Computed example of a mutant assay.
Amino acid sequence: MMPALARVRQAYEQITLPLGRICMRMGLTANMLTYLSLALSILAGYLIAQALFWWGVVGILLVGLADVLDGATARAARTAGPYGTVLDHVTDRYAEFFILGGVMLSGAVAPIWVLFALFGMIMASYVRARAESTGMIASCNVGFAGRQEKLALLILGLLAQPLLPQIRILEWAVIAVGIASHITAAQRLDYTRRKLTAADASPDPPTKSGLAG
């Protein structure tokens, strides 16, 4: 099962390609936009840590915009490559750390639940990366929820927290992110087991794949 938002990736890439061409004309490169995304995630984490949750959401949306633009620019300039892919995924993990770190420092969520969610997000990404690095699985982007779905849950919690602080909606959103992440990691591990077991049983040589993230 592929994450819901990943299913529209092909259409999304075509729609955002003109934005990449605009960035090219402005002299921006994909890597520059990746670093901008990282800087914006630090800002978003700081705003959330100060309990400025709605401004934190604005920061997260800007992170997402920079993330969209770096991919679009790489496609428009035809500069997409293994290093850019690795850099993008590494900065994504740092962004998750800064944003969830801000949630923990805000005091709105118990630290144990932040760690639970953060560890789940890292493990879901790690399982995918290790699966694809075997060279026998072209894509392990499967499971209950991808990064976008989990960020959407977090954004909903951040928006609702100032309105109903007594219900601790943000904490429940973080718990949901953690559960979704650990389920996704388990699903990806099971998918990897089935693919590799089938490859071992097949007389045909495995196909070579690219880098994962």
Rank of each mutant, 00 (worst) to 15 (best):
H89D: 09
P111K: 10
A152T: 05
A212H: 03
P3G: 08
V58H: 08
Q161S: 13
L211F: 12
A173W: 13
P82G: 01
Y46W: 12
P165T: 12
W55Q: 14
M104V: 03
I42W: 02
Q166V: 10
D190W: 15
W55H: 14
M136F: 01
A186Y: 06
A201G: 01
A124C: 09
A66N: 09
I15Q: 10
D190E: 14
G71A: 06
P205F: 11
T16K: 06
R21P: 00
Y83Q: 12
A180S: 14
A199R: 04
L28H: 02
D67P: 00
R188A: 11
V58I: 14
P205W: 11
S125I: 04
I42N: 00
L153R: 04
R194C: 01
I48E: 08
L69I: 08
V68K: 13
A49T: 03
L158V: 01
P203T: 05
L61T: 02
G107N: 11
M1K: 04
V109N: 07
I183C: 07
Y35P: 00
I42F: 04
A145E: 09
V142E: 03
G64N: 02
I42D: 00
M136N: 00
R93M: 07
D67T: 02
L189K: 06
Q14C: 01
C23I: 01
K195R: 12
L154S: 05
P162I: 09
V68H: 13
T85C: 06
P3D: 11
G20S: 07
R194A: 03
V63L: 07
P82Q: 11
R193G: 01
E96N: 08
A176K: 10
S106V: 04
I122S: 12
L43S: 06
I155R: 04
A4D: 03
D88P: 03
H89A: 08
L40S: 01
T134V: 00
M32A: 05
T91S: 12
R7K: 14
M104P: 00
A138Q: 08
A80N: 09
G146S: 10
Y35M: 11
I175N: 04
E13D: 13
L65G: 05
L36V: 06
L163W: 15
I15H: 07
M1L: 04
A77M: 11
W54L: 15
L151F: 15
N31P: 00
Q14A: 07
S41D: 00
